[in-house]
Amino acid sequence: MEIEAYLHGRGGAARTVHLRRSGYSRAMLDKALGSGRIVRVRRGIYGLPEAASELGLALRHNAVLTCLSAAPTYSLWTLHAPSVVHVSPGHRRALPGTVSHGRLLHPGHPWLPVAGLADVLIHALHCLPLLESLAMVQSAAQRGDVTVEFLRRKLPGNRNARARAVLDFVIPRADSILEVLANYHFRTAGLQVRRHVELQGVGEVDFLIEGTLVVETDGQTHLEPKQVRKDRARNNATVVGGHLFLRFGYADVVHHPERMLDQVRAVLEQSRRGAFSAR
């Protein structure tokens, strides 16, 4: 494995001892360092160039990364890269050009200047727009790294009502961030939604809406030729099996959810009027 891939899988940085145990010799580290593929964050810690600046800032100011800035460390789903660094300074003095979060209530990362997962998610629930914090919590919860019940207990009282409301939209399983977002939009629109429904001759579909309309959400892998052929066959089988069908991509779900909902409502309304009864 290339050292960049190894570091990416560990949140962007790793201790020398862990790198050596994983088979990266001193000569390999020096070569990667000399070529600029990696950087020395501090003595005994190497990282990817894009991660080192934020980690270095936290180390210099005796702070820890949290919220959106800590998401890569824990491989959490995100909608956008942070435009500013989110930190918990551990002192009252705010760091210029950063978003400061409150004190830490749980053990931090074992060796990086990063808050523990529980604090990262709690800070995100208080700080970020609903869908951005939902994406982070969903990815952690479905992996079993944290439970919704645990987070709910950590957010008591009226002042945490908005943060708790996000937890209502965490689902048991989502195969992609698009499913999380689409499910939120369908539910808040008042639609009757079933997820991961098995249809005869088709297999499992992402959503079955109002018992008649199948909706699939397509990530990047659905653009691969092999997957395109598979999806085309599933599309045909869905219609032959007596269901209506719509398919939406990343731009539809993330950037134009209202347009997606308008199309879903339009098909459902035509179905109610009998427009497809000739089938």
Score class of each variant (00 low, 15 high):
residue 101 H to E: 08
residue 14 A to N: 06
residue 78 T to N: 06
residue 26 R to T: 15
residue 212 T to G: 10
residue 150 F to N: 10
residue 74 Y to E: 11
residue 211 G to P: 03
residue 189 A to N: 09
residue 43 R to S: 13
residue 220 Q to R: 15
residue 106 H to A: 12
residue 72 P to M: 10
residue 224 E to S: 13
residue 184 Y to I: 12
residue 109 H to Y: 10
residue 266 A to Q: 13
residue 117 L to N: 09
residue 73 T to D: 08
residue 76 L to D: 00
residue 97 G to T: 01
residue 40 R to Q: 13
residue 263 Q to N: 12
residue 161 A to C: 09
residue 128 L to P: 04
residue 215 V to E: 02
residue 139 S to H: 05
residue 223 L to R: 15
residue 131 L to C: 02
residue 243 H to C: 04
residue 243 H to Y: 13
residue 38 I to A: 03
residue 160 N to C: 14
residue 129 P to G: 01
residue 248 F to S: 04
residue 248 F to A: 00
residue 202 V to C: 00
residue 189 A to H: 05
residue 139 S to D: 01
residue 21 R to Y: 11
residue 6 Y to K: 10
residue 176 S to I: 07
residue 79 L to Q: 06
residue 6 Y to F: 15
residue 185 H to A: 05
residue 194 R to I: 10
residue 155 L to K: 07
residue 30 D to K: 14
residue 131 L to V: 11
residue 194 R to F: 14
residue 112 L to H: 01
residue 150 F to T: 14
residue 129 P to I: 04
residue 242 G to K: 06
residue 249 G to K: 00
residue 108 G to A: 10
residue 81 A to Q: 15
residue 208 L to P: 00
residue 220 Q to N: 12
residue 137 V to Y: 02
residue 117 L to W: 02
residue 157 G to T: 03
residue 86 H to K: 03
residue 194 R to M: 15
residue 55 L to E: 04
residue 135 A to I: 04
residue 70 A to P: 06
residue 214 V to D: 01
residue 261 L to H: 00
residue 161 A to L: 10
residue 98 T to K: 00
residue 16 T to Q: 08
residue 148 V to M: 06
residue 165 A to N: 14
residue 268 L to S: 05
residue 136 M to C: 08
residue 12 G to A: 03
residue 133 S to K: 05
residue 123 H to R: 11
residue 126 H to E: 15
residue 17 V to P: 01
residue 27 A to L: 14
residue 152 R to W: 04
residue 1 M to W: 11
residue 183 N to G: 10
residue 124 A to F: 02
residue 140 A to M: 07
